[in-house]
Design a binder for these strands. Sequence first.
DNA 1: ATGCCGGGCACCGCCCGA
Length: 258
Amino acid sequence: MKIATYNVNGVNGRLPVLLRWLEETQPDVVCLQELKAPQEKFPEQAILDAGYNAIWHGQKSWNGVAILSRNLPIQELKRGLPGDPEDEHSRYIEALVNGVVIGCLYLPNGNPAPGPKFDYKLSWFERLITHASGLLAKDIPVILTGDYNVIPTEIDVYKPERWLEDALFRPETRIAFKTLVDQGWTDAIRKLHPHEKVYTFYDYFRNAYGRDAGLRIDHFLLSPKIDKRLIAAGVDRNVRGWEKTSDHCPVWIELTDE
DNA sequence: ATGCCGGGCACCGCCCGA
């Protein structure tokens, strides 16, 4: 089973790129972030025509997450991250697909830091840590994937010294990510590529992609009940070079069947 | 060193992303 995550940065503006990538790579399950579309503007028909079922949680202008599946039913489990009924952002959707709980998340950016946006990031992170702990306690196969907006370590950024004060790389952010992973999750990309430079995001400006000046901020965390099934993981870096492309690359993992 | 690019929305610029 191949599972991918892709921050599309606008699902409608990105539709030709998304459809081409789906056609070329045929993942079984896809988690999308930054739909930037209200619930009723999700391009459901185009996704269905491409051979994918979908559930999604839209929002006008910002955020928005979706889970797509080819040939496998999607049983929605959660819409919105538990822990704060006041939080209106569409940043989390969770479903059972092929016996695996898939959590698709778009963690807040948090800049500028410090400030209220950074506080929101850290509180959202705390809620994710709490929810993830509950999922682990169930002792079932779980994948938490998406745009974490976290640069976990120095090897995950082209020039770490420039990012020390940034919300993606500040100590509080890295500590929160480590706290989450240390619950027992496996960072799939790092597990299979322990020392390699792996980037999943490139700024649109300053020719970041051409200079390979990237960040690794899109992650797959696997629960102990599924981490032994991991056989491959990678980044579709070339997609970042397409016309009208997202600033993120698709990232994917492959699991053995059961 | 820097929203320098790009999407959405609402208008003809502004907010936001990382």
